[in-house]
Amino acid sequence: MCVVEVKGARKLMAACATPVSDGMEVLTESDRVINARREILRLLIANHDLRCLTCERNGDCRLQDYCYRYKVEDTPYKGEVIEYPIDTNNPFFIRDYSKCIRCGKCVTVCAEINGAYVYDFMHRGFETKVTSAYDDTLQETTCTFCGMCVNVCPVAALVEKSTLWAGRPWEIKKVTTTCPYCGVGCQLKLKVKDNRIIGVAADRSGPNLGDLCSKGQFGWDYVHSPDRLTDPLVKRNGKFIKVSWDEALNYVAARFKDILNEWGGRAFAGLSSAKCTNEENYLFQKFMRSILQTNNIDHCARL
């Protein structure tokens, strides 16, 4: 698709691989270029699962975008269409190779960014398929489930399981935020539908330049865990009882005051959190220092 016309060149050139040189004249949308792109698109859709109606990428699909842009509505090539079974074996995403356009982006990101070298082209000619070695499930490969292949896939060949039937692309809100796991501080986009996170998309603005690991990409679902604490708890007779916020905070405040009056600030210690925000950590130490009168504040910086 990236072919362009270079004045003086015999054939069209791949823009992605041709270095520019002095005085080079490049036509990016000449008739010759457009016709070549249209032909390529006709070829791509001739061997593509065109069930766009319920496709997860409908409306967010590069193949659709380009077909629309270059007005390719149909293909004259009605021939063999290769259908592959969908691989649903890993916990995170499906591999639907009937929708693969063999662009090789997943091959590149896996080899050049992650270094896992899970994907490559297999077979030759028309039967060329982008897949793992021996078509194995990903658990049997060196895959680390960073999910970057899913994020670079321009079509619906690789789709997060969590987004399946979870919403149309235009209904999904994307919120850029910072990953809650390690200290790299990757930026990512939470995909939100109906007040639920349904997946993660790449964001190129942070130190990660769009790259992620398995935790950032797939480690978010604890947010919706049924184990989440929902109400303040107070232990009575060795059992936790749900109480109101007022009751809980009043009780804590009263106990804090008592201990402060009886023993002074030295009797207090506080552990703040490397998981909480700067604002929260700031307030926490301010609370410990200015209200509970202690410098006994630490967190797991050393752990």
Partner: peptide, 17 residues
């Protein structure tokens, strides 16, 4: 058509067509 490496769409798909 069976010997194409599969990299370029026109060659991979086109020769089959």
């Amino acid at each position: 058509r069976m010997e194409a490496c599969g990299k370029c769409t026109p060659c991979r798909e086109g020769n089959t067509r």
